[in-house]
Simulated scan of single mutants.
Amino acid sequence: MKHVFNGGAWEWHEFPESDKAGIEKLAREKDPYHIDKWAANLPRMKTNHIMVDAFRKGEEWIAGTLVFKQDLTEKEDYHYFHFFVAENFMITSGLDFNVFGKDDYNLLNEQMDTCDNALEGFSVLLGEITTSSLMKIDPFEVKLNDLFWKVKKENSTGLLEEIYHARHELLVLKHLMMPLQEIKIAMEEAFGEQASGGPEYKRTCLKIERGFKIANEYQTEIDTLIRLEEVVSSHRGNEIMKTLTVLTTLFTPITALGALWGMNFRNMPELEWKYGYLFAIGLVVISTLILYIVLKKKGWAGDILRGKKRNSFFK
């Protein structure tokens, strides 16, 4: 499909990915731009890729493949399209606008009609793609807020799993925006101020910058949550080990004396004592109390015998 904008100032040629013949025909019409070389590589290009040609004045172009949508849970569920952009025309192949929605497509065409050249038109398209990524980042504010309070109220492997899932989703979204940053730089490399001076290009650059800033801030918050969760988990693990150590120490007398009097030697005078049983109990209690007092005075028991407070990280 061919679109002509701004009174014939520039053109946009849309092709399905399967329309190889249509692209080859257009390549013959635009012969100086060597579109045929770009088109020949399309079947193999299914991931992010970019090429820049700025050697011939007036015939500069950028081309490549852009993954513009990725499912946050399934690696193989993603959408991409191919593009070729010169000053007065651009070509897209395999761009599925159902992903954006019909209203966005119509609005996109109206906005492109105000652009002076294809560079500005392509910037509008990149801006729309950036906006769709930003809309996915926004819900992280609610998700992170929930995680902040969950970390305070509970401490479990499930919560750590939830935090790492959020981190992975954010990394996927950042990965989608990184090629946009590369394309932005490639446009400046190929077209110089002709690209960087346009209002739509500047607007798209601000969107990309905003997306990266938000994503970086959220990533910092998630990393802080992970460190906090790890510190709390480590502290509680240490408390558990300390508790087990103290309890083992306190039960050492009864264990040792029980083992001693559980032996089957014939000559054990304690067995004939009238008050031997009471003596044994008293010895166990007194030795246990002595151990407890020693641990308490030296501070080795810490606060493990105190009850834990609700909504507290360590107390």
Rank of each mutant, 00 (worst) to 15 (best):
K2E: 15
G7I: 03
A9C: 05
E11H: 08
D19Q: 09
A21D: 08
K25A: 10
K30T: 01
K30I: 00
P32S: 07
I35Y: 04
A39Y: 02
M45C: 08
D53Y: 03
F55A: 06
I62Y: 02
G64L: 08
T65I: 05
T65M: 04
F68C: 02
E76V: 03
D77H: 07
H82V: 02
H82S: 03
V85N: 04
D96E: 15
K102M: 04
Y105E: 13
Y105W: 14
N106E: 14
L107N: 15
Q111D: 14
D113M: 01
G121L: 13
S123P: 12
G127H: 12
T130S: 11
T131I: 06
K136Y: 04
D138T: 13
V151W: 02
K152G: 09
E154S: 08
T157G: 13
G158S: 12
L160K: 06
L160Q: 07
H165V: 15
L173T: 11
M177G: 12
Q181A: 11
E182K: 14
F191H: 03
E193P: 01
G197H: 09
Y201L: 11
K202D: 01
K202A: 06
R203T: 15
K207P: 06
E209V: 12
A215G: 08
N216K: 07
Y218M: 04
T224P: 03
T224S: 05
I226M: 04
I226Y: 04
R227I: 03
E229C: 14
E230T: 09
S234P: 15
T245Y: 02
P253T: 00
A256D: 03
A259P: 11
W261D: 05
E272T: 13
Y275N: 14
Y277A: 13
L278N: 13
I281A: 13
L283M: 11
L283I: 14
V285E: 05
L289K: 05
I290N: 06
L305R: 08
N311T: 09
N311M: 13
